Lab assay of single mutants.
Amino acid sequence: MDVFMKGLSKAKEGVVAAAEKTKQGVAEAAGKTKEGVLYVGSKTKEGVVHGVATVAEKTKEQVTNVGGAVVTGVTAVAQKTVEGAGSIAAATGFVKKDQLGKNEEGAPQEGILEDMPVDPDNEAYEMPSEEGYQDYEPEA
Protein backbone atom coordinates (compact mmCIF):
# COMPACT_ATOMS: atom_id res chain seq x y z
CA MET A 1 0.00 0.00 0.00
CA ASP A 2 2.90 2.36 0.77
CA VAL A 3 4.34 1.77 -2.69
CA PHE A 4 0.98 2.61 -4.24
CA MET A 5 0.63 5.82 -2.17
CA LYS A 6 4.22 6.82 -2.94
CA GLY A 7 3.55 6.31 -6.65
CA LEU A 8 0.42 8.48 -6.49
CA SER A 9 2.34 11.15 -4.61
CA LYS A 10 5.05 11.23 -7.29
CA ALA A 11 2.42 11.40 -10.02
CA LYS A 12 0.76 14.31 -8.23
CA GLU A 13 4.11 16.12 -8.00
CA GLY A 14 4.56 15.61 -11.74
CA VAL A 15 1.14 17.05 -12.51
CA VAL A 16 1.82 20.05 -10.27
CA ALA A 17 5.19 20.63 -11.97
CA ALA A 18 3.60 20.39 -15.43
CA ALA A 19 0.85 22.82 -14.44
CA GLU A 20 3.44 25.26 -13.14
CA LYS A 21 5.42 25.07 -16.41
CA THR A 22 2.22 25.66 -18.40
CA LYS A 23 1.36 28.63 -16.19
CA GLN A 24 4.87 30.02 -16.70
CA GLY A 25 4.57 29.59 -20.48
CA VAL A 26 1.25 31.42 -20.57
CA ALA A 27 2.72 34.24 -18.47
CA GLU A 28 5.68 34.52 -20.87
CA ALA A 29 3.36 34.56 -23.88
CA ALA A 30 1.26 37.29 -22.27
CA GLY A 31 4.39 39.30 -21.53
CA LYS A 32 5.60 39.02 -25.12
CA THR A 33 2.15 39.99 -26.38
CA LYS A 34 2.20 43.07 -24.15
CA GLU A 35 5.67 43.93 -25.46
CA GLY A 36 4.42 43.64 -29.00
CA VAL A 37 1.36 45.81 -28.38
CA LEU A 38 3.52 48.51 -26.78
CA TYR A 39 5.84 48.25 -29.77
CA VAL A 40 2.90 48.80 -32.13
CA GLY A 41 1.79 51.84 -30.13
CA SER A 42 5.20 53.46 -30.51
CA LYS A 43 5.44 53.02 -34.28
CA THR A 44 4.69 55.66 -36.87
CA LYS A 45 2.14 55.29 -39.66
CA GLU A 46 4.61 53.40 -41.87
CA GLY A 47 5.66 51.00 -39.15
CA VAL A 48 2.31 50.00 -37.70
CA VAL A 49 1.55 47.25 -40.17
CA HIS A 50 4.97 45.71 -39.57
CA GLY A 51 4.46 46.12 -35.81
CA VAL A 52 1.19 44.17 -35.87
CA ALA A 53 2.99 41.34 -37.67
CA THR A 54 5.70 41.47 -34.98
CA VAL A 55 3.06 41.06 -32.25
CA ALA A 56 1.67 38.01 -33.99
CA GLU A 57 5.11 36.51 -34.54
CA LYS A 58 6.28 37.04 -30.93
CA THR A 59 3.07 35.54 -29.63
CA LYS A 60 3.39 32.58 -31.98
CA GLU A 61 6.97 31.99 -30.77
CA GLN A 62 5.85 31.92 -27.16
CA VAL A 63 2.85 29.71 -27.86
CA THR A 64 5.25 26.93 -28.82
CA ASN A 65 6.43 26.91 -25.18
CA VAL A 66 2.94 26.20 -23.89
CA GLY A 67 1.50 22.71 -24.04
CA GLY A 68 -1.90 21.08 -24.20
CA ALA A 69 -5.25 22.78 -24.43
CA VAL A 70 -3.78 26.07 -23.24
CA VAL A 71 -2.28 26.57 -26.71
CA THR A 72 -5.70 26.99 -28.26
CA GLY A 73 -6.71 29.64 -25.71
CA VAL A 74 -3.43 31.53 -25.98
CA THR A 75 -3.67 31.53 -29.77
CA ALA A 76 -7.20 32.95 -29.62
CA VAL A 77 -6.15 35.62 -27.12
CA ALA A 78 -3.12 36.52 -29.23
CA GLN A 79 -5.24 36.86 -32.38
CA LYS A 80 -7.73 39.11 -30.58
CA THR A 81 -4.84 41.17 -29.20
CA VAL A 82 -3.41 41.65 -32.68
CA GLU A 83 -6.84 42.62 -34.02
CA GLY A 84 -7.26 45.06 -31.12
CA ALA A 85 -3.83 46.57 -31.76
CA GLY A 86 -4.80 47.14 -35.38
CA SER A 87 -8.07 48.77 -34.34
CA ILE A 88 -6.21 51.05 -31.93
CA ALA A 89 -3.75 51.99 -34.67
CA ALA A 90 -6.64 52.84 -37.02
CA ALA A 91 -8.52 54.79 -34.35
CA THR A 92 -5.49 56.90 -33.48
CA GLY A 93 -4.78 57.67 -37.12
CA PHE A 94 -1.46 55.81 -37.33
CA VAL A 95 -2.76 53.72 -40.20
CA LYS A 96 -5.79 53.66 -42.51
CA LYS A 97 -8.36 50.93 -41.95
CA ASP A 98 -7.78 49.54 -45.45
CA GLN A 99 -4.11 48.93 -44.55
CA LEU A 100 -4.95 46.69 -41.60
CA GLY A 101 -4.44 42.98 -42.13
CA LYS A 102 -1.75 43.45 -44.80
CA ASN A 103 1.99 43.19 -44.52
CA GLU A 104 4.48 45.61 -46.04
CA GLU A 105 4.12 44.02 -49.49
CA GLY A 106 0.32 44.39 -49.33
CA ALA A 107 -0.37 40.67 -48.90
CA PRO A 108 -3.10 39.69 -46.43
CA GLN A 109 -1.89 38.70 -42.96
CA GLU A 110 -5.01 36.85 -41.91
CA GLY A 111 -4.42 33.26 -40.97
CA ILE A 112 -1.00 33.75 -39.38
CA LEU A 113 -2.10 31.94 -36.25
CA GLU A 114 -5.09 30.02 -37.58
CA ASP A 115 -2.95 27.84 -39.87
CA MET A 116 -0.64 26.81 -37.04
CA PRO A 117 -1.12 23.07 -36.36
CA VAL A 118 -2.41 22.69 -32.81
CA ASP A 119 -3.66 19.58 -31.05
CA PRO A 120 -4.92 20.18 -27.49
CA ASP A 121 -4.48 16.48 -26.68
CA ASN A 122 -0.87 16.43 -27.96
CA GLU A 123 -1.66 13.29 -29.96
CA ALA A 124 -1.00 14.26 -33.58
CA TYR A 125 -0.36 17.30 -35.68
CA GLU A 126 -1.74 17.99 -39.12
CA MET A 127 -0.20 20.29 -41.67
CA PRO A 128 -2.23 23.34 -42.77
CA SER A 129 -4.37 22.92 -45.88
CA GLU A 130 -2.62 23.24 -49.21
CA GLU A 131 -5.34 25.38 -50.81
CA GLY A 132 -3.15 28.48 -50.76
CA TYR A 133 -0.06 26.72 -52.12
CA GLN A 134 0.98 26.67 -55.77
CA ASP A 135 3.03 23.98 -57.44
CA TYR A 136 6.54 25.12 -58.19
CA GLU A 137 8.13 24.07 -61.43
CA PRO A 138 11.75 25.16 -61.88
CA GLU A 139 12.71 26.74 -65.15
CA ALA A 140 14.86 24.55 -67.41
Rank of each mutant, 00 (worst) to 15 (best):
M1S: 00
M1T: 00
M5F: 04
M5K: 09
K6F: 08
L8Y: 07
K10R: 05
A11M: 15
K12N: 01
E13S: 11
E13G: 04
V15S: 00
A17D: 05
A17I: 11
A19D: 01
E20Y: 15
E20P: 00
K21P: 00
T22G: 10
K23R: 07
G25S: 12
G25Q: 13
G25L: 13
G25K: 13
V26N: 00
V26D: 00
A27P: 00
E28W: 04
E28G: 06
A29G: 04
A29Q: 03
K34Y: 05
K34N: 03
K34E: 14
K34W: 02
K34H: 09
E35C: 15
E35A: 06
G36K: 10
G36P: 04
G36S: 15
V37T: 00
L38G: 07
Y39L: 03
Y39E: 03
V40P: 00
G41P: 00
S42L: 05
S42W: 15
K43H: 04
K43A: 10
T44C: 05
T44G: 11
T44M: 12
T44W: 15
E46C: 04
G47Y: 08
V48M: 09
V48P: 09
V49Q: 13
G51P: 03
G51V: 11
A53T: 01
V55G: 02
V55H: 02
V55K: 02
A56C: 15
E57G: 06
E57K: 09
K58A: 05
T59H: 02
T59G: 05
T59F: 15
K60T: 06
K60I: 08
Q62I: 06
Q62F: 13
V63H: 00
N65S: 01
N65Y: 04
V66Q: 03
V66L: 08
G68Y: 10
A69H: 12
V71W: 11
G73Q: 14
T75K: 08
A76N: 01
A78W: 12
A78M: 14
A78P: 01
Q79M: 03
Q79W: 15
Q79C: 13
K80S: 01
K80R: 05
T81C: 12
V82L: 15
V82S: 08
E83G: 08
E83F: 10
A85N: 04
I88V: 08
I88C: 08
A91Q: 09
T92Q: 14
T92R: 01
G93C: 06
G93T: 02
G93K: 04
K96Q: 14
K97Y: 15
K97M: 01
K97L: 00
D98F: 02
D98S: 08
D98M: 09
Q99W: 08
Q99F: 11
L100M: 05
G101V: 04
K102Q: 09
K102V: 11
N103F: 08
N103Q: 15
N103H: 15
N103W: 14
G106L: 12
G106C: 13
A107N: 09
A107C: 06
E110Q: 10
E110G: 03
I112R: 15
L113G: 10
L113P: 02
D115L: 09
D115P: 12
D115W: 13
D115T: 11
P117A: 05
P117V: 13
P117F: 06
V118Q: 14
D119Q: 13
P120H: 04
D121L: 08
D121Y: 14
D121I: 10
N122K: 05
N122A: 11
N122H: 09
M127H: 09
M127P: 03
S129N: 12
E130A: 11
E130H: 12
E130T: 06
E130L: 04
E131H: 11
G132D: 13
G132A: 13
G132M: 13
G132K: 14
Y133N: 13
Q134F: 03
D135Q: 15
D135H: 12
Y136T: 01
Y136E: 13
E137P: 09
P138T: 09
P138W: 12
